[in-house]
């Protein structure tokens, strides 16, 4: 394609091709601190759904190594969102080296907290806020669980903040770098946050998972232990490639669900959540 950009996020190399210059320039600016990708694992292509739509009401259709049928094109102003969605899709459907969990993670002293939950549970916000309190941010979309070692690998892509989280994180991280505010997307308002320099510099350092959290935002503060069986079932639902990995996935996930302490955390706001998480961590 006419405009191209390549970079590596954790162990995954991407090449983004675009029919327009602007999306590639936006990506290059936001991913400026990331290493390049000599041999990308995945390609994402941003192009018009028809030749006319390159100029007339320009819209971005996603293409790449893996695609989903019937994906509606996004307006060109939301090309950054399309690129991020495309990158996530390639990893979700194509990555086989690790067991993928739809989760966020932070690390301290070589040990990590993995947070998983439905969209809106607040795992992106929580991981970002913890990142501002001395934890190393490892990612907010995918946690990559290594079948050989049981360690997790970071995937610190841009943090996709939605709706109310945008202002909350901007207030907590006044010096952080943000992408443009994308209003009226299919997911509401979205603004991308660039992970801090430490998260990017250390993204090749794996960590041993020490705590698995199931956070839930908007509830009165509560903490309850989660049994291994329940955690296992919820984790199979949070994994995009559990079935594809076969017995390797089974061994990896049962070990994780059995050996790591598991806690469901309800929290009313970010400050309360951080206090709960720090208390759980201190009690390990």
């Amino acid at each position: 394609m006419k405009h191209q950009f390549a970079m590596r996020v954790g162990p995954v190399g991407f090449r983004i091709g675009s029919a327009w210059r602007a999306p590639v320039e936006q990506l290059a600016a936001l991913y400026a601190g990331y290493p390049g990708a000599d041999v990308p694992d995945f390609t994402v292509r941003l192009g018009p759904p028809s030749p006319l739509r390159r100029w007339l009401r320009p819209a971005v259709a996603l293409a790449g190594d893996f695609t989903l049928p019937d994906t509606a094109p996004l307006p060109l102003a939301h090309a950054l969102l399309a690129a991020e969605m495309g990158m996530n899709l390639q990893v979700a459907l194509g990555h086989r080296r690790h067991l993928l969990l739809h989760a966020a993670a932070v690390e301290r002293g070589g040990r990590a907290i993995v947070m998983t939950g439905e969209s809106g549970a607040g795992k992106s916000t929580l991981a970002t806020l913890l990142g501002a309190r001395g934890w190393r941010f490892m990612g907010d979309e995918f946690v990559l669980l290594d079948p050989a070692t049981g360690m997790i690998h970071a995937f610190p892509r841009l943090v996709s903040l939605k709706n109310r989280a945008i202002a909350a994180v901007a207030a907590a991280l006044p010096d952080a770098r943000f992408g443009p505010l994308l209003t009226g997307t299919p997911k509401g308002d979205i603004r991308h946050l660039v992970p801090d320099a430490r998260a990017v510099a250390a993204m090749d350092d794996p960590a041993m998972p020490a705590l698995l959290l199931f956070p839930r935002f908007g509830e009165a503060a509560a903490v309850r232990a989660v049994a291994a069986g329940e955690a296992f079932v919820r984790l199979t639902q949070a994994s995009t490639n559990y079935v594809a990995l076969g017995e390797r996935g089974f061994d990896t996930l049962t070990r994780f669900a059995r050996d790591v302490p598991k806690v469901a955390v309800d929290y009313p706001d970010g400050e309360a959540a951080i206090a709960q998480v720090e208390a759980l961590w201190a009690a390990l």
């Binding site: 291994a228 069986g229 329940e230 296992f232 017995e247 089974f250 070990r255 059995r258």
Partner: peptide, 15 residues
Amino acid sequence: YRIVALDELSAVYHR
């Protein structure tokens, strides 16, 4: 098969 006890439940992988 492989079987792993997970507290009160067990996960069984049918090869």
